[in-house]
């Protein structure tokens, strides 16, 4: 267990370092002069030089990298080019909204996926299975930037049940969370089904059956918990899709989270903010994955013999 933790931790650290590198290099990927892109091609020379200096772009690359790492350690992410506010403040303001949206989406996804997957696994190749899996496939294929507007059209406009966008009212989160949660529920339901089918074929369940336990009891108490391990891993991985998808969903619903911050910054050519948002979202993802793996290893002692 400790050995596993150590290797996992070290690979996480390397991952974080790599993400930092890539995010740092992002600004250097801008074709041409990044300062010109940020300020517009006809900006005053003096303004350009001032920005170049404040971003440190006039220094050699290794020096810039070093400065970047040092300021990160001091939690100094610089200032927004657009509003002039410290970027850390902007992030801190937006994090709760994204967190809230992600958690509600996750809840929706799980509450949808578990019964669907159960239904499909217990009625293999029957209409229930086909229906549930058809729904899952549909959910995977609906892009969230289309589902979002359709949900607004139906939920807010025709039915009048939900606020259109923004964060007002307790139910405002439901439409964006449903948009975000559906695709995830689809993938999750497929996973629940296949994982459950695999478990149902195992010996201990036959024993349980032989003991005369009720099918419901076998399913819920013995089969389901044992097939949840792979689902847990998928859940961790899915959070990545969730966080990435949140960028689009937040844009559709004007949900004031990190994703919207990033898109707004892209539109304003405010690259330091884009960098910070990407960094923040990716680091969260890495840490959640680490947590998932640790929980997984803790729950399944066999894991330490396998390399992740």
């Amino acid at each position: 267990m400790t050995a596993f933790l150590m290797t996992r931790l070290s690979s996480t650290l390397i991952g974080i370092l790599g993400v930092l590198c890539l995010v740092f290099l992002l600004i250097h990927l801008i074709p041409g002069d990044p300062v010109e892109v940020m300020l517009g091609e006809s900006a005053l020379q003096a303004d350009k030089e001032a920005l170049r200096h404040s971003l440190g772009l006039n220094l050699p690359l290794h020096q810039q990298w070093w400065d970047y790492m040092r300021s990160l350690l001091r939690l100094d992410l610089g200032h927004s080019l657009f509003s002039g506010r410290p970027i850390l403040d902007l992030l801190v303001e937006r994090i709760p909204a994204t967190l809230y949206l992600s958690l509600v989406s996750l809840t929706i996804a799980i509450t949808l996926a578990l019964p669907l997957g159960l239904l499909a696994a217990t009625h293999k190749h029957q209409p229930w299975d086909l229906g549930a899996m058809g729904f899952a496939l549909l959910g995977m294929s609906i892009p969230n930037f289309w589902l979002g507007p359709i949900l607004i059209l139906v939920g807010s406009l025709w039915l009048g049940w939900f606020p259109v966008s923004g964060q007002e009212g307790w139910n405002a989160v439901l439409l964006p969370a449903l948009t975000l949660g559906t695709a995830m529920a689809a993938i999750l339901a497929r996973m629940v089904r296949s994982s459950l089918l695999e478990t149902l074929g195992e010996d201990f369940l036959r024993t349980a059956q032989a003991k005369g336990l009720s099918p419901t009891r076998i399913l819920l108490v013995h089969a389901l918990p044992n097939s949840l391990l792979p689902i847990l891993t998928l859940l961790g991985l899915q959070l990545g899709g969730l966080l990435g998808g949140a960028v689009i969903t937040e844009t559709v619903f004007a949900w004031p989270g990190l994703g919207l911050l990033m898109i707004e910054a892209i539109q304003q050519r405010d690259y330091p903010v884009v960098q910070a948002a990407v960094l923040c979202i990716s680091l969260t993802y890495i840490l959640v994955n680490l947590l998932t793996d640790v929980v997984y290893a803790w729950l399944d002692p066999r894991i330490q013999f396998k390399r992740p």
């Binding site: 709760p96 958690l103 509600v104 996750l106 799980i110 509450t111 964060q167 989160v173 918990p225 391990l229």
Partner: peptide, 25 residues
């Protein structure tokens, strides 16, 4: 048994989410 926590996963999230519903809004 160790897998109980997974059963509570949704529950935990629900509690968290509800907490946020009343906190954030």
């Amino acid at each position: 048994p160790r897998f109980i926590i997974i059963i509570h996963w949704p529950a935990t999230l629900l509690i968290l989410a509800l907490g946020l519903v009343f906190g954030a809004c």
